[in-house]
């Protein structure tokens, strides 16, 4: 069954949508959308380094994305304006990644695949990475759910309840780096942030609790993945951007329904 490239594409896209859902909620609630972008742009640098050092791509992207997340978080805590800093980090990482890629000998890298994903070239190993990474993310967030939520509401309430909000933040950054590394092949470095934020935004109007929002984001993400793949197949459009477009349509429908109702 896994020998069919279309089956692999569907499984990969659905896996990434499910992995992104619980994290997408936190990205929205903590206003980390641009933080997510900076982290995913760093993945390009990760790919270049992985090729240069001949280590697995997944490991390269994971490590560089994680390093980026911690660096930005650290600088933000030092009082630098978050918005400005993220602007520097996000664009800087993208540019540095593109420059680094050009240095890798033989130009074995398909730049468009890196930026926008190459879902139809998904291998069995990629599926393993996506579902394995997704399971780890889900387990991490499920395990720390109440603590993560408390720390998201207020660092002071967390401290008073014996929770270290800094540790919870590090856990979210680890989860973010995992999702970035897993999703790179599906939607590419430029659109990973979209996969985190848009399904969560589509779920927001109908959610009364954080749990409902995450469940809604998972449903919206999976529907967008299937719709996007179908559209890519029928209209011969790039798969990653098509998935994101489908998610935007769901968001628009959800928001409009709510405004009417």
């Amino acid at each position: 069954m896994l020998d069919d490239f279309l089956t692999r594409a569907v499984l990969g896209a659905v896996g990434v949508a499910l992995a992104a859902a619980p994290l997408g909620g936190f990205v929205a609630w903590r206003r980390m959308a641009y933080f997510g972008d900076a982290t995913s742009h760093a993945a390009i640098l990760g790919v270049a380094l992985a090729l240069a050092l001949s280590v697995p791509i997944f490991a390269g992207t994971l490590v560089v994305a994680l390093a980026m997340a911690f660096l930005v978080a650290h600088l933000t805590d030092r009082g630098m304006g978050a918005d400005l800093l993220l602007g520097v980090a996000s664009h800087g990482a993208l540019a540095a990644g593109l420059v680094a890629v050009s240095f890798v000998e033989g130009a074995r890298i398909d730049l468009s695949a890196l930026l926008f994903g190459d879902i139809l070239a998904l291998g069995k190993g990629d599926l393993l990475v996506i579902w394995g990474g997704g399971l780890v993310v889900a387990a991490l967030i499920f395990w720390r759910w109440r603590r993560l939520l408390t720390a998201t509401l207020s660092a002071d309430l967390a401290f008073a309840g014996g929770i270290d909000p800094e540790r919870e933040k590090r856990i979210l950054m680890l989860a973010l780096a995992l999702v970035v590394a897993a999703a790179l092949k599906i939607v590419g470095a430029l659109l990973i942030g979209a996969l985190l934020v848009i399904p969560a935004a589509a779920a927001r109007p109908f959610a009364r609790t954080p749990e409902m929002m995450v469940a809604g984001a998972a449903v919206a993400g999976v529907v967008a993945a299937l719709l996007g793949l179908w559209a890519a197949w029928v209209f011969d459009t790039p798969a990653g951007p098509s998935i994101v477009c489908a998610a935007v349509v769901l968001f628009a429908l959800s928001t409009l329904t709510r405004l009417r109702g």
Partner: peptide
């Protein structure tokens, strides 16, 4: 306590944290 408008949370659920 400032609640981000993107975070849906009922009073009852809030009392359950942590």
């Amino acid at each position: 306590l400032q609640i981000d408008p993107s975070l849906p949370m009922t009073v009852g659920r809030f009392l359950d944290l942590p």
